[in-house]
Nucleic acid binder design. Structure first.
Lengths: 352, 352
DNA sequence: ATAAGCATTTATAACGTTAAAATATATGGG
DNA sequence: CCCATATATTTTAACGTTATAAATGCTTAT
């Protein structure tokens, strides 16, 4: 039983003993309770820093009921392209130095996801929840509103009660995309939409239809596939469509994967993108800057979305009114500034 | 003070009271302590299920010191293509139903990352750690070994003390890739490598050199860029290289982004991939199945890597010897079976 | 001088769990 | 019939924190 080096980590008791005051006093001093003499507070805080004290999360949590945890329900959607990572990065960035931790829960389908949320609320597993793939009549949102549990959804619902959300301006995207196609001379536009149940399907459709109706061009909604379909299914479907008469000469593709799949399909048919068919994609990743031929694209900045989601959630937890907690993110024409990389040798040319 | 509906969640005390036994008995019955009468155990467990009891994590953690948390240090690397997501998905899948939660910590550079790990160990923020971007002399590994704290690294070190890891067989990849290029008639091979400090650079180089030496062909290591370089930097560098004399006619590209960047560069030069230059990439995402012209590719299954990482970590926490906790993941020729999607309407053709 | 008032601090209890020690009950041997 | 030995359960204490009530000391007004 010789554990000489294992200096056990300091607690409030350690500080209290060292200073000859009570544990309660330490607790309040650290909490900056104005009831406490300014001097004592400073002294305790100094000592705490000296000893490298950090509060025990478990004890705090047990006592106060606050978990200091934010839950992210990670969408199951197999976006080939780092959907999750970017969002997570954004959330983490905002959570940095707040004392909050990000716990990722995988989402195994809509029903399972609801269950999980109930567990989180019931067992107080977190102080707030972030999730995506929102539907107009989202059960999760209804449940969370009812339970008065802090959350921010990525995407809007259409419930009567307003709720906090961050959503990309899909209306603007679809409209701009369609207008771009029309400008380039397309006579019959096609659009690929998300599955019926998602709210943003309506937004996309609305934006698309606005542009189409204004210009008076033909249009169609790609049938038999959705944004969630497997890439191969999308490719196959599009190939089939373009082999049939009256194929569109302009496509709106609101996702990286579907964009790639469509592009591949068109190329495989021997058609020339930009001549035979125009494409506009919504990308979150920057792939289309690296794919040839170059395709018109608009950006959804998921990293910023993540930051915003976390930001609004923290504000919600702090008690801000819902009216201040709704954010529609503008679509960007250019990619967000790329993240810092960690290859200093290459970044800063060696001086030697 | 009327909170009629808010049935507070049941604790062991609730169960104990209801059954007329002591709290301690409940605790041990739930833990399936063989000291406890079989009958009591069954009864308690039944009652617990009936009441919907679930243990308070904070209390357990405070009492036992076990956090039931796994930390993932999320690499800062701006892989455009879902590095993080796939890994996270794999880890989550393995952690499902184990009672462990996954907490994601962003990594803001190598030094910061070491700090974070120290905090985790010192403040017992988790029961185990997973991280990547391993170096031969990795300080984090040295520290964790020293502290005897459970971890699994993604990638190997070259330390004398063996440690748990999951690593992709980069030697095999580079060798197979180079051999493929040689088979296709390439006379001068180029390879893009990760920054010097990473262990897997050596593995890639070794595999590459083995193939090159055996075949006796020319080779070069792309200079001035690394796998971590910005996509634009890679494109620019490769364009410059191919404008100069004795350019390679075969390239090994061990990453999705670099593969795309190289492909774009070559196409922008007016060269024809597959005729003027052969490429073999290592992809983690499946993008290259959707990019034209088709490029030879090998797969690294990050989702499986994540599962394996979590699996080994759990075993390590349970006390398994290190010798059983090292896994070199074979490179795959075909993409891993794609994940389940959640668009049932499209998956199972409607019966109506 | 005494009581009331205020500022500061301490003491107590509790959050829900579990590990260890103590107790009660039953079983078997002498 | 009593002691020893299992077996099953209860009691006690603690993990580190914080909210509340109680106590202390000190000033000020009466």
């Amino acid at each position: 039983m010789s554990e000489p080096s294992k200096t056990k980590r300091p607690t409030q008791r350690t500080i209290a003993a060292k200073m000859g005051i009570s544990v309660g006093a330490v607790s309040r001093a650290l909490a900056n309770d104005p009831q406490m003499a300014e001097e004592t507070r400073a002294l305790v805080q100094k000592m705490a820093k000296e000893l490298g004290y950090s509060p025990d999360r478990a004890a705090q949590r047990l006592r106060t009921g606050r978990t200091q945890v934010i839950n992210l329900i990670l969408p199951p959607h197999e976006e080939i392209l780092g959907f999750g990572t970017l969002l997570i990065r954004g959330i983490s960035a905002r959570l940095e130095n707040t004392g909050y931790h990000l716990v990722v829960l995988p989402d195994f389908g809509p029903d399972k996801s609801a269950e999980q949320i109930q567990r989180v609320v019931r067992d107080r597993l977190a102080d707030g929840i972030i999730f995506s793939r929102t539907t107009p009549d989202d059960n999760r949102i209804k449940f969370l509103l009812e339970a008065d549990f802090p959350f921010v959804s990525h995407g809007r619902s259409e419930l009567a009660t307003p709720h906090p959300f961050v959503d990309c301006d899909n209306y603007a995207f679809a409209r701009q995309a369609a207008e771009t196609l029309i400008d380039r001379g397309a006579k019959r536009l096609g659009i690929l939409l998300p599955p019926e149940r998602f709210t943003f399907r309506q937004h996309l459709l609305h934006g698309f239809m606005t542009a189409v109706r204004t210009a008076g061009v033909d249009y169609e909604i790609l049938d038999g596939i959705s944004l969630d379909s497997d890439a191969n299914a999308i490719s196959a479907n599009i190939q089939k469509r373009f082999a049939a008469p009256d194929a569109p000469d302009g496509l709106v593709l609101p996702g990286d994967v579907s964009g790639l799949a469509a592009l591949a399909a068109i190329q495989d048919l021997g058609l020339v993108p930009g001549r035979d068919v125009q494409l506009v994609v919504k990308q979150t990743s920057g792939v289309f800057d690296l794919v040839r031929p170059k395709i018109a694209s608009l950006y959804e900045d998921l990293s910023e979305a993540g930051e915003k989601l976390a930001d609004l959630l923290l504000k919600r937890i702090a008690g801000a009114p819902v009216s201040e907690l709704q954010y529609i993110q503008p679509i960007a024409g250019r990619p967000p500034a790329s993240d810092t990389l960690f290859d200093p040798q290459l970044r800063a040319p060696s001086v030697r």
